[in-house]
């Protein structure tokens, strides 16, 4: 308060400009402008060189509707969203409850270890799991052979049916630690007296979980689910790109990996921008729906 009274108006404006303007300009140039001109590019047919840029209106969007890869890619995206949310939330909630509600002396150890995959690069995780699925020397097939299930071995990432489910596992593996910690944060905010009262009333841990823990960490669960959905729709293509590059025969293409292929392999920049708009629109719509859906759920408790 005093600070602002002592300074003259002009000095204050100068100081504010010093603090805010350089950041705002760089942010506008490198974040806002690219997003907006992405929308603009999607109206052109363009192979990258300046001269051949032709305006085709909504032509790229019409092409989206006819492209057989697009519905497949959208389906794959939501397949990953669904199974990642399911796998991560079930396991992360389970671990969070076990580590907070039961007296596990070494819980600090698990907390540190489970977080390891969250600091690893997706590239490392993708390469690692490509090895685990390697048809000849991979851990999965060696394990199956070791217990006599030779018939179940298959080239996991090369299989039309199994490639996509195989990608879910590393994604869940890499995600659990962070969300476990978020949910643990929520649980530790619940007053211990509530659980003590429930103990006195003879409620089992199982009942306590459904009636106390779950409703009271709903905010954290909701935030986690929305975060997983956003990062999956917009980032899952990185692991796809590394593990399968969208193959075999487009069986694992998600919208993001298809965008990359269209833009930087086939040089259809306009069409790729339209795919980018589609990704943005779908992820915003999905998050909005989830906000509504998860809000209604909450009232039931």
């Amino acid at each position: 308060m005093i600070a602002s009274m002592v300074q003259s108006k002009a000095q204050r404006a100068k100081f504010l400009a010093f603090c805010l303007l350089p950041t705002m300009i760089l942010f506008a140039v490198f974040s806002v402008y690219p997003l907006i001109s992405g929308l603009y590019y999607s109206l052109f047919k363009w192979s990258g060189s300046g001269a051949k840029k032709t305006f085709i209106g909504l032509g790229n969007y019409a092409r989206l509707l006819e492209d057989p890869v697009i519905p497949k890619a959208i389906g794959h995206d939501y397949f990953l969203v669904f199974f990642k949310v399911l796998g991560i939330m079930v396991l992360a909630t389970f671990f969070a409850v076990v580590l907070t509600q039961f007296r596990i002396k070494e819980s600090g150890f698990y907390r540190v270890v489970f977080f390891f995959p969250n600091i690893m690069s997706v590239v490392v995780i993708g390469i690692l799991w490509t090895f685990i699925y390697n048809p000849d020397m991979g851990l999965v097939n060696s394990g199956l052979r070791a217990i006599g299930l030779d018939g179940w071995t298959r080239p996991w990432l090369g299989s039309l049916t199994w490639a996509l489910p195989s990608i879910v596992l590393p994604a869940v593996w890499a995600g659990i630690g962070l969300f476990m910690l978020m949910i643990m944060g929520g649980i530790s905010g619940i007053p211990a007296s509530i659980f003590e009262a429930a103990d006195v009333d003879g409620a089992t841990k199982w009942e306590q979980f459904w009636k106390i823990t779950l409703p009271l960490v709903w905010a954290q669960l909701k935030a986690s689910i929305i975060y997983i959905v956003i990062t999956t729709l917009n980032g899952s293509f990185v692991i796809v790109q590394i593990m399968t590059e969208g193959g075999p025969n487009n069986a694992t293409h998600v919208m993001g990996s298809y965008l990359y292929q269209q833009a930087f392999v086939n040089y259809n920049f306009g069409y790729a921008a339209a795919i980018g708009v589609l990704i943005l629109a779908l992820s915003l719509a999905t998050v909005l729906c989830l906000q509504l859906f998860l809000k209604r759920e909450k009232i039931q408790y």
Binding site: F30, L35, A273, L280
Partner: peptide, 14 residues
Amino acid sequence: MIPMVLGWIPLFFL
């Protein structure tokens, strides 16, 4: 909250 995927193409040319 807004993902940058769409921005990468213009960013490349920028």
